[in-house]
Design a protein around this nucleic acid. Structure first.
Lengths: 206, 206, 206, 206
DNA sequence: GATGAATGAGTTTTCATTCAT
DNA sequence: GATGAATGAAAACTCATTCAT
């Protein structure tokens, strides 16, 4: 959001201010639409209105550019979720989880391309890039570890698997969600949490 | 499974038998490990022990080869799930869903590369390839539509979202599952279903 | 003509008789439509209803196949012109030239693809193929040398250039002639000869 | 001419100046010597002293490169003929036609490879390239339409066929002309026009 | 005769990257 | 900062030809 706004402001101002930010924005769009491999540096340069060689003034290479996009994506989701939790500091654990999920999914499905990239453009496993990005993502997911651990779940519930199931269901929605659908991202998130809540916190069945 | 076995048998026999099947197997491995774009026809040919040009005797092009791999994957998962359901024809709906999920996840996480490709190597959206593969997958997912519709879910439950949540959680596990983990695919599947079950069916525990 | 008829007869008879002739026919079509380089042996095989490898039972290679097509074309034009001249043995030289030109142009523009290939698909100069084909064509063009030499042209007329001008004008028509045009090949030929005749044989101007 | 001179000057100067022009020159040579299909981008790059990939900085592809060569050829012939006509504005129609033909044939037979390509390297009919080039050529040939229409030809003479005959005879000479021949291009042109003139214009000799 | 498989050399084209200007 | 030129490596794919069956 921030990045995109900055870029748009610059462009509108005919400004030379933050070319780097503008590059990031179009790169995010393209990576998101076509994937990492299928997006060429030339494509990005063209969309950014500069020449391919100029990209290397801002980023060491394609990997670095992608990493920057990814990092921006993680920051964006992170900020959205933290913001939501900030505003609900005193609510009960389920409500907090629900709000976090709503923010998470809104960022993924209705936010900028930066957020989508994080979930949709998986770095090739095993690469150096992969390790770097994984670290970023893990930092973010720690939030959900805390949120889930705070839930009054039945004993013997596997908290880790609960978290992975929840995030998996949410993240997977990027493969089927269509913006014109009849459910807004927030509602989807609320309902998914609802599916996993039910009798969970009454300690009933395992 | 069949394909891989056939190919290995042939190779072991020093046989000339089914080169096409052997190509499919290594292609599945590579597509799975690196993704579609990052896997070159040369890589596949090299791994298959033939020259790159020879691939075009068996497959019209890279797209066609990928489609064949994908189709084999869908068939494999489909067969596994249908087999499991066949053997449990008289069981209650939740049990049937659980068995289907176990078979689904076992195929994805412990099966051949064909199965994994279906979930992990998403074709670029909008391509002709994408449409073709989507059709194949949709056919398979119809099974789960039936299984979910058969559940005694609380009224006003969104069946579609229930199904998408379940499959999302299962499919997403391909991004975090490690074979050396302490949970077998079947157990993971059982527990995920458990998380979604709980009091869903009017509070009764299985 | 002969070749094509033979091939059609064979095909109609479901016959296995003269596969070679059938290959020649489709090769002529393709060479004519696309040129030598742009026509692949596979294309030819496909159009002939056989597999590419089988072509090599009939022809030593692509060059040989083309040479055979070309030779058939030369023979065809040759036969047409000789036939016309045969039937006009006693006519005056201009009439004989006119009839020859009519036959020549009819073969090129309204005959089989064999004839067109001779004029439209020039072999790459300098190749062995080129030399071979040039010989064939030269044999044929000798006819026109005789016909032109028999004309009562004004003294000091360059007979060779007259012949080259005439044949050039005729042959070049393959680049602009459209079958739906308002002039039939024979009429075109007659008129071209007419343009070159005029006062020629009155000994007037040079 | 201009292009070639520029390129040669650059090369002689060891200059870095106009690589694009140099590429055009060698491309014209090769297209002319071998034809479109038989000339590879590698061949051109090699002859131009650059790597194959570098060609794509100057031309979008092989088609575009050929089109550029062809356009240069048309321009060249066009300029030569217009120049000749310019210098003979007040001459009689037959003389003007003769001068145009001389310029045309000199360009084809003794000019650069650009000019020859126009007549000798026919694009495959039906392709997009074909249509583009045909338009270029048609523009040029309009000159001859005017020149022929200005002739005092006998009534009922088909002007179009007269023009096609003339140009056909001239253009076809590229298939038999050898530079060491005893007739210079201009003389050939003059004589061809002479053959078509004769008593055409009401029996008067020039 | 016929063919399916295979190949080696080739095709056009793309791409991330470098660097002198 | 910016770029035009250049490159080396690689991409997908084609092709004429061979040969065991």
């Amino acid at each position: 959001m921030t990045l995109q706004h900055a870029a748009q402001r610059d462009a509108a101002a005919g400004g030379r201010v933050n070319r780097r930010a503008a590059v990031l924005v179009v790169a995010a769009q393209l990576f998101n639409a076509r994937g990492y491999e299928a997006t060429s540096m030339r494509d990005i340069a063209l969309a950014a209105g500069i020449k391919a060689g100029s990209l290397y003034h801002f980023f060491a290479g394609k990997d670095a550019l992608f990493a920057a996009v990814y990092a921006a994506g993680v920051r964006e989701i992170h900020a959205a979720v933290e913001g939501a939790l900030e505003a609900a500091r005193r609510r009960d654990p389920w409500k907090r989880l629900q709000l976090a999920c709503e923010a998470h999914l809104a960022a993924l499905l209705a936010g900028t391309d930066f957020a989508s990239v994080v979930v949709r453009t998986l770095p090739r496993p095993g690469t150096r890039l992969d390790a770097a990005l994984r670290a970023q993502r893990d930092g973010y997911e720690a939030i959900f570890r805390e949120l889930v651990d705070a839930l009054p779940l039945a004993p013997r519930t596997d908290h880790q698997l609960f978290r992975l199931t929840l995030l998996g269901a949410l993240n997977w929605s990027t493969t089927w969600y269509r913006p014109d659908g009849r459910r807004a991202p927030q509602e989807i998130a609320r309902r998914v949490v609802g599916l996993l809540r039910s009798a969970r916190d009454k300690g009933a069945c395992e």
